[in-house]
Amino acid sequence: MNNSANALSKESMSKVTNVVVAGLGGQGVLKGTDILAEAVVRAGFDVKKSEIKGMSQRGGSVTGDVRFGKQVFSPMVTSGEADFLLVFEPSQVEPNRHFLRPEGVMITPDVVDAERLPSKKTLNVALLGALSAHLPVPESLWLETLKSGFDESFFEANKQAFQIGRATQSNSVR
């Protein structure tokens, strides 16, 4: 039975896309996973998003998991199963690298030119933009979600940051 359990779980996992977003408290990790999860819901997927809050608000490490597909069971991404790893802060690359599967894609701040961003605070949105280029969600849904997910007054800046990110070629890390 053990073998069949493993084989079957691989197959069912393959239909689910796993994203891990990592950074430090205050960097907008949870906001980033909110937007991502909301956008994929709007695109019609089942989605689960998991986060560990609590002590994280005091500047500690924060990670958020988003899983989507036809039907998602566990809300957590298993180590070695992430299709995408978004890292907002270089120091958090190593602690989270284990999440990525061998062919997974890592997206780090150096994929966008920080100088071009409307503000430092929009880095999370820019990296979502870079991720969005890989996901089956139309741009219009992303923009809708950005509009409703933040205060209206931030929309123009967020849109600009998102599009800068979306236009980049994120590096695929093995």
Partner: peptide, 24 residues
């Protein structure tokens, strides 16, 4: 998921802990 898999497979080998993040 990984630990449930281990339980079903009677796996008693030591688990690797992920690298520590930044403490609060």
């Amino acid at each position: 998921v990984a630990r449930v898999k281990r339980i079903l497979n009677y796996d008693l080998t030591a688990e690797t802990s992920p690298p520590p993040g930044k403490p609060p």
